[in-house]
Design a protein around this nucleic acid. Structure first.
Lengths: 316, 316
DNA sequence: ATGAAAGCGCTAACAC
DNA sequence: GTGTTAGCGCTTTCAT
């Protein structure tokens, strides 16, 4: 494996000159620049990233903590992050936790070992008290709002959006409204959904809430329960369009009509929702991911709220 | 940020001694070992990975080239890879290509820059001629069989499994058999499916083949076409259980019975297939991923065939 | 058992 | 414009 010295020797110049052409510095004669470039091409030489990272004290690698790498919502954020990482010539390391708090801490310590320049947390397993100490070693950006001043946030105002969604359903004349969530009460957004529901409709009846919904098939199973209650809900607020699609499919399969027999409101404006004309509240997760990345490389601790918008289609 | 010198000074020993306790070398007196460890704990010190990687000439990072990070089949391989990476204390970098050949080449060059110790290709976009030159810089393992001797393989014997699957359907009395695939004819496994089909049934009629099926909704759409042909197929071989589930759902929704009206055979033994009792051919992708990882760290160029198995349930 | 010193491959003052 | 040289933070001979 050739190194910069080999190139310098072969080209008859100093390592500095090689370094200069590598980094497009000025003050290199055209003549030498060409000579060096020729040797580089001949040897098919590429500088060693480790050496560069060591001297620069950065790796241009940023880590993204994600619970699952097969969830549409997280994929959208990741997508936004990848957009920006390409633009800024960073590479991103996906750090899947499956909500394992210990693993999350291990990932965070990659900041300390200088493997990562920053980490973005799309959804966390530890409490903030356990996370913030790591900000000593590099920026930590959250996709959820937190008051901790060490943490930059690119967040969705979920509570407000949930309240608006439930009000929308109420305005449309719905009294018996069910909803689905991803995680259970350990999750902030589940709690926010509950609180928003209470604000609009009062305490939800237990059988109007279905937890652990991530995919289309989870939605299908949720509908199998919800649509066979004697006091059937007249509307369902799903925690994603994929889940909503599963509900849709089951409702259709038992001969129900949407929205006549049951209204359906999804989230995140995912492709399948568009295909089935399901109304949805778009939290603009791609944009949230992009913003999170910008905060990360700027080492910013700003709290940026990403606006949501409701997309009206024919399911409510 | 403290470095090894700071620790050495504070503990009143040489950097060598610190390095020794860090790496659990023998020949360190218990006394000094404790002294050093105390300072390490006090400073919450962690060695800088870049420096270690530079000197060792390795990063203990292996890259996994994957077309999409939201596809069940690739997720299974990734899962297997992650299993082993944790066990061997490597970290894995997910490199999503969306089948962009240029991007794939960029990822491969991370071997050359020493960012990666090895790369595993779950599905490739470039031809092997373009890929093999990179083996100069580090091991490349493929999850698809190839004759190129520079490439280690942990592969599925897809052709044999496809032939067996189609024969199974034929034995059950099916003459009109349709199938779905992921990519089109640019993909080896699509070609293998065609060839296997031909061996058993002869050339497939054009409307019995549906390309670009990845998800449940793709299966749903495939069924919308397949089940409305005048000469309807009596059996469908789906390229995954998720796709099969979509077909299942549509068939049910138009009042068909499985397997009476249409038989269904899936692939990969995914959870949803189990839930719907869909027979499946399990290519044991998790095991394939585990094996690929082992080959990668052993720098082995072996060609290992992963056995498949057919799981009989009630859909055929 | 312990430490001094020579690198790993590169960048960036600094001098010329 | 170009080269010399001192590190970046660590591991590892080689002495002692």
């Amino acid at each position: 494996m050739a190194n910069i010295h080999d190139i310098a020797k072969k080209a008859g110049v100093s390592v500095t000159t090689v370094s200069r052409v590598l980094n497009n510095h000025k003050y290199v004669s055209e003549e030498k620049r060409i000579a060096v470039q020729n040797v580089i091409d001949e040897f098919n030489y590429t500088p060693n990233r480790n050496a560069i990272d060591l001297i620069r004290g950065e790796t241009r690698q940023i880590g993204v903590i994600i619970p699952y790498n097969n969830n549409q919502a997280f994929d959208q954020m990741l997508h936004g992050i990848l957009n920006k990482s390409i633009e800024h010539e960073y590479s991103v390391i996906v750090l899947p936790t499956t909500y394992d708090a210990k693993k999350e801490l291990e990932y965070l310590s990659m900041l300390q070992t200088k493997m990562l320049d920053a980490v973005i947390i799309t959804s966390r397993s530890n409490n903030w008290e356990a996370i913030t100490p790591f900000t000593k070693y590099g920026p930590i950006i959250s996709c959820e709002y937190t008051d901790f001043s060490e943490i930059g946030c690119s967040y969705i105002d979920r509570y407000t959006s949930y309240v608006e969604a439930f009000y929308l359903l109420k305005e449309r004349g719905h009294e018996r409204v069910a909803f689905t969530t991803a995680r259970e009460m350990e999750s902030k957004s589940t709690i926010q959904t509950f609180t928003a529901y209470e604000e609009v409709f009062g305490k939800p009846s237990g059988d109007y809430v279905i937890f652990n919904c991530y995919s289309m098939q989870d939605g299908y199973r949720a509908a199998q329960k919800l649509l066979h209650i004697k006091e059937k809900p007249t509307a369902i607020y799903a925690n994603g369009d994929e889940v909503a699609a599963g509900i849709y499919q089951y409702a259709i399969s038992i001969g129900m009509h949407i929205p006549r027999d049951v209204a359906l409101l999804g989230q995140e404006n995912q492709p399948i929702g568009e295909a089935l004309a399901i109304s949805t509240v778009d939290h603009q997760l791609i944009q949230a991911g992009e913003q999170a990345f910008e905060l990360a490389i700027k080492k910013s601790k700003d709290k940026i709220k990403i606006p949501y918008q409701i997309i009206h289609r024919s399911s409510i």
